[in-house]
Design a protein around this nucleic acid. Structure first.
Length: 581
DNA sequence: GCTTCATTAAACATGT
DNA sequence: TACATGTTTAATGAAG
């Protein structure tokens, strides 16, 4: 049988060449793939039925029945089989509806993605029916109807045998979208009656959408009446509900498997594309950078003066970080918006996955300076770096920053001073920079409410807070993550991008959780801090700092003083005792 | 068109 | 004096 390909290699390639596969696109692909698989399974089922019929026909012909009897029987069986076909189609519609109600499947009229055959139409097995006319079998309807097949849970065929045989393919997009009001999210009682009518998942286009019902209800009250009378809480409804649950579970299981398969495919392709990247002659910059104090300008002969053409991973990972694509290589110039900031891609994942690429290609990393600085600091064992070490990290990790040192170094310094998320801490050796994770997370969404800008920008407030216990919360965060056995971003994890992304994603998630959890200042145990040697913490106020009516307040610089946070953020008013100077 | 943000450039201060 | 470090301001462009 000519079965439609789920996804051809060409299609896959097309997908992969779309550098950024949004989760929505991925979802659509998975749904389409699953729908096609469903279609295939049903078609296989039809085929098997047909084969059985043919076999039985041959047997009957050998038995030598009377022609008239045979004709009558054939007519009856044909009718029964057609009914079963319709029921199968109904079942298929129900599957689709289930997906749509859950928001898993959204068939849009102009969706230009992979060619998904309209199931409601494509599944009408006219050819099969034609074949049926040619053959005469002795199948009973029950045999057909309750013949479960393959992995599909077709038990609904038996349960919902009350379906009207005249039901046609009522699945249409509009009804489907109506159904998206979701079975799983019951309407609030405050919702208007009209909305409820329009969005009731079991009612659409004047038809009861109860599985296998399709009863015509002129208006919503009559539908309700019908619903209460015909689909009351009884054994049949319970059984149907149970079957529907099984259907959903089956589909979810299948979706999960397909997701895993896709992930494995992506991972496989990604690994394969990065395999030959192991440069036989890696740039000897790392050692020179780390050994030299003024290593920001590495030896010119070791630098790629022309933009390298690395073998870049071509496959965008769909979950989490993205991998450098060919076209992104061209984004060498100044990028005002960094996509990883914009799309919330964990920077550590991206850097980890494209580490070799960034090291060898003079491609500007698609992150802001602030993100890069933060990453540099977080990668350090002590979560603190001197300015020079930050420079070194830049040059070590990115070939792009091996040139124009004056420019980007100035930018680094500028960012360090400008952003409140970077905290300068003086210790005995000198000044190091740490990350105020809360501040950084707070500024990431970049959600701007314009009315809050009256707060006068500016002015660094170098408050010398007193003690070593002025621990940047980042340390506590890291410690908490360590306690939760969440691997930090290390070079050891770079070998496994999936793990890295997962860890990063979890870390980002956890940051948010801890952020809230810590907002009461309960767990900033100084004992965990790796920075007890700190003496001075300079707290600065970021120019973009609004009054922040919403979102977590930063307690990093204040939690050490008082849990009662002053929303005016006037850190100068905080008690400053025992200034070290 | 406005606002916000990131980037870049530059001036300036301070310390070594 | 030169350089590194740190702060601040301003201009510019991208994006929302």
């Amino acid at each position: 049988m000519m079965t439609p390909q789920v996804i051809t290699p060409q299609q896959m390639q097309q997908i992969l060449q779309q550098q950024v596969l949004t989760p929505q696109q991925l979802q659509v692909l998975l749904q389409q793939q699953q729908a096609l698989m469903l279609q295939q399974q049903l078609q296989e089922f039809y085929k098997k039925q047909q084969e059985q019929l043919q076999i039985q026909l041959l047997q009957q012909q050998h038995a030598g029945k009377q022609p008239k009897e045979q004709q009558q029987q054939v007519a009856t069986q044909q009718l029964a089989f057609q009914q079963q076909l319709l029921q199968m189609q109904q079942l298929q519609q129900q599957h689709l509806l289930t997906l749509q109600r859950q928001g898993l499947l959204s068939i849009q009229p102009g969706q230009p993605t992979l060619p998904l055959q309209p199931l409601a139409q494509g599944m009408i097995p006219t050819e099969l029916q034609q074949l049926w006319k040619e053959v005469t079998g002795s199948h009973t309807a029950d045999d057909v109807g309750c013949n479960n097949h393959s992995t599909l849970d077709l038990s609904t065929t038996c349960v919902s045998s009350v379906a009207s045989p005249k039901t046609s393919l009522l699945l249409n997009h509009q009804a489907s979208t109506n159904g998206q009001a979701s079975l799983l999210t019951p309407k609030r009682e405050s919702a208007s009656h009209e909305d409820y009518m329009q969005n009731h998942p079991l009612y659409g286009h004047g038809v009861c959408k109860w599985p296998g019902c399709e009863a015509v209800c002129e208006d919503f009250p009559s539908f309700l009446k019908h619903l209460n009378s015909e689909h009351a809480l009884d054994d049949r409804s319970t059984a149907q509900c149970r079957v529907q649950m099984q259907v959903v579970q089956q589909l979810e299981l299948q979706l999960s498997k397909d997701k895993d398969r896709l992930q494995a495919m992506m991972t496989h392709l990604h690994v394969k594309s990065t395999e030959p990247k192991a440069s036989p002659q890696p740039l000897n910059l790392v050692s020179s950078v780390t050994l030299s104090k003024t290593a920001s300008e590495p030896s010119p002969q070791s630098l790629p003066h022309t933009p390298t053409t690395p073998t870049t991973p071509l496959t965008p990972l769909t979950q989490g970080p993205s991998v450098i694509t060919t076209t992104s290589i061209h984004n060498v110039g100044p990028i005002r918006r960094r996509y990883s900031d914009k799309y919330n891609v964990p920077i550590s994942s991206d850097i980890a996955q494209n580490q070799e690429f960034y090291k060898n290609a003079e491609v500007r990393p698609p992150f802001t300076y602030a993100s890069l600085i933060r990453q540099a600091i977080l990668e350090s064992p002590e979560k603190q770096l001197t300015l020079n070490e930050i420079y070194n990290w830049f040059t070590r990790m990115f070939a792009y920053f091996r040139r124009n040192a004056a420019t980007w170094k100035n930018a680094v310094r500028h960012n360090l001073s400008l952003h409140k998320c970077f905290v300068r801490v003086e210790n005995v050796k000198g000044a190091v920079w740490t990350v105020d994770e809360l501040e950084f997370q707070k500024r990431r969404p970049q959600k701007i409410s314009g009315e809050d800008r009256h707060c006068s920008p500016s002015l660094i407030k170098n408050i010398h807070t007193s003690h070593a216990y002025c621990t940047p919360l980042n340390a506590a965060l890291q410690a908490s993550m360590a306690e939760n056995s969440i691997p930090l971003y290390t070079t050891a994890s770079m070998g496994n991008p999936a793990l890295t992304s997962l860890a990063s994603a979890m870390r980002e998630e956890l940051n948010g959780v801890i952020e809230h959890g810590n907002s009461n200042g309960s767990d900033s145990s100084p004992g965990r801090s790796p920075m007890q040697a700190m003496h001075h913490v300079h707290v600065k106020e970021e120019p973009l700092d609004p009054d922040e009516n919403e979102g977590p307040l930063s307690l990093v610089t204040t939690a050490n003083h008082s849990p009662d946070f002053d929303p005016d953020r006037d850190y100068e008013d905080e008690p400053v005792n025992e200034d070290m100077e």
